[in-house]
Amino acid sequence: MAEQISSPFQAGVGIGRPRLGFALTAILIVFYFGFVGLGAFAPAVLAKPLVDGGTVTVAFAYGLFVIALGVVLTGIYVLIANREGIR
């Protein structure tokens, strides 16, 4: 049991990829809370139509963007982590 706990850590390298993880988390937080914050403090921005005279508002585009961003950032993390794993 002790072996199980200690071995990965004694390797001396950072566990996981904290810097990459924090950076990607920060990006997601900025854009997601940008969305929530605009809705809370500047709703007029989100209420604007995407195209002049159109029905689809900026809110839809931004919402979909955050959803896509989650996939993209996860993809970046997995790509980097797995490439390092091979090396």
Binding site: G16, F22, T25, L28, Y32, G63, G70, T74, V78, A81
Partner: peptide
């Protein structure tokens, strides 16, 4: 709906490896 999608990346970035 948008909020739910932000949860999984956070787990991956901050916790899964540790």
């Amino acid at each position: 709906a948008v909020g739910y999608t932000t949860g999984l990346p956070i787990v991956v970035f901050l916790m899964a490896e540790r």
